[in-house]
Structure formats: structure tokens, C-alpha cells
């Protein structure tokens, strides 16, 4: 499972053991991506300074870092990031429970499938972002409207993936349970749900990004706090380095979620590590 398929460039592999990349190869492997990033940032800094690009269009990385430092030191950024995370994460968690629960109900009961599923399919095609202003009207200026928007956006990928995952169960496994006269709930719990886990995780990793998007759009549409509010505010003041600094904050949260989810995926769906490349 942990065997890496990349060939270790320039290393002598030990015979009979599964080819484990040499220390050097592994380190260079790990460093390639950060190295490129540093190169890019360095060029960015150079380009902006050398060609005297207007800081309103593209500030140099150094200015962004300074802005980030000020925002962090004053506590302003973290306070508002906390608010946005609270909204995005609440939306994500609600969407997760509702998406999995409704997906399970739709896959288990023909009646619910017939009545609810057509609506799900229809709603799925509506761009949820478009109704963010409406939600603001309905749910007010506070956190609720942002949580609702985040939930709405994150909900569908989870729901759809849950349904697909639960339906994808091999007939043979279902026959096995049927031959033992296992009930619906037992079959669901012991076979269909674990079988659907890889799909559900694929849905979750899409949804977690969507939930940030949803919270942010909610804040754009109308808010007096949160990262979305700060971005708009900085934009009005033409404080572009601060906009970039705030984007970095959001990216940090997004990456953290992604890493945590991938870790949970690896731990829970240990049996098909080989095909673990599904969700990007």
C-alpha cells in the first residue's frame, strides 16, 4: 500500500525487496514542488519590481507577506477567519449528515426515490450561488445565511456521491446477505455503507471546498464580518496586498481540510488504497 510507483531516479534498488525509493530520491521528490513554488514567487517578486508593475494590479510577494504579518499580529485576520471557518465548517457538517442520510433513504426506499429524487436532480442543475441574495433576505445578515449557503452548495456533491456509492454495490455481495436472510438495515450497515465509503469520501472532498465557497459568497452578498467581508473591504480600499494575504488564509484552511479528509479516507478505506486516486 505504501509502495510508491515512481521510479527512484539514480538510485540502486535492493533486489527482491519492493523498490523503495532511496532517501535522496525521496527528499528530492518531496522538494520538487516547494522548489518550484519558491522559484515562481522569486520570479514574481523580481518581475513586479523590475518592470515596475502597478501594485494595484499585482503586488510583490514581499508586500503580501508584510500585510499578512500585520493582519495576523493584530489578531484581526484570525478573528475573522474563525468566523468564516465556523460558517463553512457548520455548513459542511450539516451537508454531510443530511447528504448521507438522504442519500441512504433514497437508495433504500423506492417511495422516497420516486418522490424526492427527481427534485434532487432538478435542483442540482440550479446554480446555488445565484440564490445567495435570496437566502440573505430569508435568513438575515448574521451567520445563519452564510451557513445555509455553505450547506446548500456542499450538500449536492455529498448526496449524489452517496447515492452512486450505495447503488454501486455488487449484486454478489447483496445475494450473500440475502442468502442469510439479513434484513435491510443489516445489509445496509454491513455491506452497502462500507462499500460506498470511497464514493462518499470523493463527495466530501469536493464538498469541503464548496462549503468555503458558499460561506465566502454569503459574506460577499452581505456581511459585517468574516474573511469575505475583509476581502471586499480591502478591495474597496484598493489594499490589494491585503486581499492576497486573506486569500492565503483561506487557502491554508482549505488545504488543512483536504489533508485531514485524505487522512481519514486512508484510515477508513484502507482496503482499496490502490485505487485511491479518484478524488482530486
Amino acid at each position: 500500500m505504501t509502495v510508491q510507483s515512481e521510479s527512484a531516479v539514480g538510485s540502486v534498488s535492493v533486489p527482491s525487496l519492493p523498490a523503495k525509493p532511496s532517501m535522496l530520491a525521496r527528499i528530492t521528490d518531496k522538494l520538487v514542488s516547494p522548489f518550484f513554488a519558491i522559484l515562481l514567487v522569486a520570479y514574481w517578486e523580481f518581475h513586479v519590481r523590475y518592470f515596475e508593475v502597478d501594485a494595484l494590479l499585482l503586488p510583490p510577494p514581499s508586500k503580501i507577506l508584510v500585510s499578512l504579518w500585520h493582519g495576523l499580529a493584530s489578531g484581526l485576520f484570525l478573528e475573522h477567519l474563525g468566523i468564516t471557518i465556523y460558517r463553512a465548517l457548520s455548513g459542511f457538517l450539516i451537508a454531510m449528515f443530511m447528504g448521507i442520510a438522504l442519500g441512504a433513504l433514497i437508495s433504500q426506499f423506492k417511495f422516497i426515490e420516486k418522490t424526492v429524487y427527481p427534485w434532487v436532480v432538478a435542483l442540482q442543475t440550479v446554480p446555488k450561488i445565484a440564490i445567495a441574495p435570496l437566502i440573505l433576505v430569508w435568513c438575515g445578515y448574521g451567520s445563519l445565511s452564510k451557513i445555509v449557503t455553505a450547506t446548500l452548495v456542499a450538500f449536492f456533491p455529498i448526496l449524489v456521491n452517496t447515492i452512486i456509492g450505495l447503488r454501486s454495490c455488487e449484486q454478489g455481495k447483496l445475494d450473500l446477505m440475502r442468502s442469510l436472510k439479513a434484513g435491510r438495515w443489516l445489509t445496509f450497515r454491513m455491506v452497502q455503507l462500507p462499500n460506498a465509503l470511497p464514493f462518499i469520501f470523493a463527495g466530501l472532498s469536493v464538498a469541503v471546498v464548496f462549503s468555503i465557497l458558499g460561506a465566502l459568497v454569503g459574506e460577499f452578498v452581505g456581511s459585517k464580518d468574516g474573511i469575505g467581508f475583509l476581502i471586499l473591504d480591502a478591495n474597496y480600499q484598493l489594499n490589494i496586498p491585503r486581499v492576497f494575504a486573506l486569500l492565503i488564509m483561506l487557502a491554508a484552511y482549505g488545504i488543512t481540510c483536504h489533508v485531514l479528509l485524505r487522512y481519514a479516507h486512508r484510515k477508513l478505506v484502507f482496503w482499496n488504497d490502490q485505487h485511491n486516486v479518484t478524488s482530486a
Binding site: 455481495k173 445475494d175 442468502s179
Partner: peptide, 14 residues
């Protein structure tokens, strides 16, 4: 009263 062995083993991978 019937024990069944399916054409492919049909084990639960988890």
C-alpha cells in the same frame, strides 16, 4: 440451511 459459495469468492474487503 444452505451454505453458498459464489462463483467469485465475494468476500467483504473491509
Amino acid at each position: 440451511q444452505a451454505g453458498i459459495v459464489f462463483q467469485d469468492a465475494t468476500l467483504l474487503p473491509w
